[in-house]
């Protein structure tokens, strides 16, 4: 595997290349039996509690660390294009305070590349609402003043 990652404030993007075809790579996400064999970082195992693999269908996983810590993640499938795209909402029960109950979105793209497949995953709509609100306030309150200043007008 070869991979890279990029992290912005509002999204996470990771990408990796595998020496297998896109059908095999996609199947690892679509088949719950396969998913349980790999999903989760090293030292974790995943249990598929629910997986209704169709658009609008719900999924729910349980992740268990080696030390026994448990986390739950759930969502619903938004787009399923075999061997091309898988998109689903993602909410973490243990992170609900950060996401403020919002659904984040994960899109997994599968591309044939250099005799293998590239998998690119984007996790969007991260909990930036609070940050964005603050920035919007900051800029919206500051920009009109700057505009007036540049136009040679005074506030008073």
């Amino acid at each position: 595997m070869s991979g890279d990652a990029a992290t912005n404030v509002d999204e996470v993007k990771v990408s990796a290349w595998y020496a297998v075809g896109v059908r095999q790579a996609f199947s690892a996400w679509a088949d719950p039996g396969k998913l349980e064999k790999w999903f989760g970082p090293k030292g974790f195992r995943a249990e598929v509690l629910e997986m209704d693999f169709r658009i609008g269908g719900r999924w729910r996983f349980k992740m268990i660390s080696q030390s026994g810590d448990v986390s739950h993640h759930y969502g619903r499938y938004l787009a399923i294009e075999p061997d091309k795209l898988l998109s689903f909402t993602w909410q973490s029960e243990e992170d609900s305070d950060l996401t403020e109950g919002r659904e984040t979105r994960v899109s997994v793209h599968f591309y044939a590349e250099a005799g293998g497949s590239r998998v690119t995953l984007v996790h969007e709509r991260l909990p930036t609402q609070q940050a964005m609100r603050a920035l919007e306030f900051g800029w919206s309150s500051g920009m009109p003043k700057l505009g007036r200043l540049l136009e040679g007008k005074r506030d008073d």
Binding site: M1, G3, T7, V12, V14, A16, A28, P41, K42, H123
Partner: peptide, 16 residues
């Protein structure tokens, strides 16, 4: 989540 998904794609690679 950047670390989480990066590690997940590594696990996927090993599985494949």
């Amino acid at each position: 989540y950047g670390a989480f998904w990066g590690a997940n794609l590594e696990s996927l690679g090993e599985f494949l």
